[in-house]
């Protein structure tokens, strides 16, 4: 199935694009998708998304159809799903 991965805020600048479309398996995990996005993207994007052990950094917010993804809630993808990767901003 096809999903859309959007980059917002600081992540968009590092990705140097607004979004990518991915063909993924229904059983794809969030970790698998993030790894793929990170390694198919720019070096700055990879550094922003993954720590030294290639785990998703805790400062990255992931939304599935505008609903925050958390570890204690099921991650279920559907065809046409929109995943957004972003961070908090702090300008005042």
């Amino acid at each position: 199935m096809k999903i859309r991965v959007r980059f917002d805020s600081q992540v968009r600048r590092l990705a140097a694009c607004k979004e990518v479309s991915l063909e993924v398996d229904e059983a794809a995990t969030l970790e698998q998708i993030i790894q793929r996005v990170a390694f198919e993207g720019t070096e700055p994007l990879r550094a922003a998304l993954l720590d030294n052990e290639r785990r998703l950094r805790t400062s990255i917010l992931v939304f599935l159809n505008n609903d925050l993804v958390t570890k204690d809630r099921p991650f279920v993808l559907h065809d046409g799903a929109e995943l957004t990767l972003t961070t908090l901003i702090s300008g005042g």
Binding site: Q10, P44, R57, T58, I89
Partner: peptide
């Protein structure tokens, strides 16, 4: 809370 969303500062900030 804020730390629920981001327990550490984004690396790019």
């Amino acid at each position: 809370c804020l730390a629920c969303l981001s327990p550490s500062a984004p690396t790019a900030w």
